[in-house]
Amino acid sequence: MSTTETTPAGIGPVEGASVFTADNPAPVIEPPRKRTKKTPKSTRGNFEMYGWLFMRLSGVVLVVLVLGHLLIQLVLDGGVSKIGFAFVAGRWASPFWQVWDLLMLWLAMLHGANGLRTVINDYAERANTRLWLKGLLYTATVFTILLGTLVIFTFDPNIR
């Protein structure tokens, strides 16, 4: 019926005796974090649902905030060349732009952090790697949010 053409494979006669036999088979490669009877541990609570919802809602708000921000900063009224200390000071004199920037900072940071958290959950296989990556992520997020908030609220236009 046909001819067989086999590429050199680990199957069939190989040079020398194989170290693996029926009684001593090679180790199989198990996928990471295999599900067993005992896993996953139930984690009551709606955190994941709120996280998922937050991503959608903050995404919609951010489209307006970020595009508006880019338009004002880079396109309208002379474009990027107008930006300077005086421009920022003038904008932050108004509570409207303070709220805008604060909202943008918080939403963008939390949105990005939550996105990275899911990426870590998806791709980091070992529990320790997850722990460290998430620790690093949360530290950076909290630091940036706090620093940004501090600057927006304590900004002093008369600084020398």
């Binding site: 019926m1 046909s2 090679a26 180790p27």
Partner: peptide
């Protein structure tokens, strides 16, 4: 894709031609 833990720890490709 062939794999036989009783022969080798490696999985390999093997070609078969058939009518």
């Amino acid at each position: 894709r062939r794999f036989n833990p009783e022969v080798s720890a490696e999985a390999t490709w093997q070609d078969f031609q058939l009518e």
